[in-house]
Write a protein that binds this DNA or RNA. Structure first.
Lengths: 233, 233
DNA sequence: TCTTATCTAATCCGTTTGGTCTATAAAAGG
DNA sequence: CCTTTTATAGACCAAACGGATTAGATAAGA
């Protein structure tokens, strides 16, 4: 973000495969604009290096055993630096790509790709962009659409929309883990009134207990609707 | 996917702004390789056209009032054709981009972009790729990381990891909405045993009832862990 | 072998929850 | 003015849930 473009980009590599680590290091150092300041074959020491050296970018191998690359990315993100992270992997596993991006990777590169692509990816990420080769972005979005899908059928959404305002308030509190007595206190109404509302909710949502009602609410994005003023999809 | 590349790509446009609709139509028809077979200023008729004509790609405007573009994309996806959808929008609203991709858009183009970029986007999407301009993909991933984040703090994760296998099985069933009797039948154990397990779960997760346990489990990605054999992040 | 962890199960007791029914008051809409 | 919807709340009863304790069987580990 605030990198000095007149100087070289400072890079740290984390990869348990020493051969590959050194290969990449040499490759990058041959380019004039990169400076591999540190390398590490373990996650822990790698993260500590990042903490110390505040590099512009870190390349993290995804195919490590122990704590694995995801953990590394996660921890680097938690440092709160403006260090970018680029994930390296031997496999184009959709789940791994998904998780890597989730914990904060700004790009994902396969080791099988040409070295020119790696250079390109680093530059893109350094420039503040996201780098996902089209084949990987395809995998990512397919997985994304499968995994993050919400409020599937419209019928169900209509069920939620039949709730009155008060019933919504009650359900909202239930989804926060409150029991009937808690709700009655929060809303300044008697417990029997809460029960009445809840029973109405049960019938409208076609569930038979509190837990199912809460599950229904969450699975159908009831909690998100509070924050979002958009049309629900 | 199975498009005949010797013929023109068949396109349907859905945009409530008639001026813009016609502008795009002319633009695309000037290119030799596109054939705008239908256009619609309403979502309903647009979706019906898609149902009839099975186009290769549909361009959907995101800034429509009534049922809005998201609904259109969603319905087109539900048809189960291999019709691709490209979202068009005047604004680079992160939430809108996120939702559009979630319901199945294969790309997202701003109306303010050069027409050459629209052409490019269409071709990329037709080729089976995802098209997200880098500025938009940046917005998408920032929003993605904020929204889809899971299992934040490690402390909590440790709580979940203290559960025994059996307790996990029980909790799993609870998160599916089953009561104690249901669980006892499913696991072929007595109800009192289920209660014992559940009470242990309560203590370990530091909650006081079934609903809270289920909420805890879901909020900490417990349900996802079943499917994934990866290290949890 | 002894200890610990896990899974199993029971009893007792009190609280919470769920089902049903009735009823009043206010507000909205025709 | 009348009907419907909504919010309120009561009584009554049954079922489910939660807390605490005890305890047997097994399996794993020191």
């Amino acid at each position: 973000m605030h990198r000095d473009f007149r100087s070289k980009a400072r890079i740290i590599l984390i990869d348990d495969n020493y051969e590959h680590l050194m290969g990449v290091k040499e490759l990058l150092n041959m380019e004039g604009c990169f400076d591999v300041v540190q390398t590490s074959t373990s996650v822990n020491t790698g993260v500590n290096m990042v903490k110390k050296y505040h590099p512009d970018i870190v390349l993290v191998d995804m195919n490590m055993p122990d704590k694995n690359g995801l953990q590394a990315i996660h921890e680097i993100q938690k440092l709160g630096l403006n260090t970018k992270v680029l994930a390296l992997s031997a496999y184009d596993d959709a789940d791994l790509i998904f998780r890597a991006m989730k914990v904060g990777a700004r790009g994902y590169v396969l080791k099988t790709m040409a070295s020119a692509q790696l250079i390109c990816a680093i530059e893109e990420v350094l420039a503040g962009k996201i780098y996902l080769p089209s084949a990987l972005s395809l995998r990512f979005f397919e997985y994304f659409q499968k995994t993050v899908k919400e409020e599937e059928n419209n019928v169900d959404e209509e069920l939620l929309s039949t709730l009155t305002q008060r019933e919504e308030e009650v359900l909202d509190l239930l989804t926060q883990g409150y029991g009937y007595n808690d709700v009655s206190e929060k809303l300044f109404i008697s417990t029997t009134t809460v029960k009445t509302h809840v029973n109405n909710i049960f019938q409208k949502l076609q569930v038979r207990d509190r837990t199912q009602a809460v599950l229904y609410a969450i699975r159908h994005g009831f909690d998100k609707k509070r924050k979002s003023n958009f049309v629900s999809i």
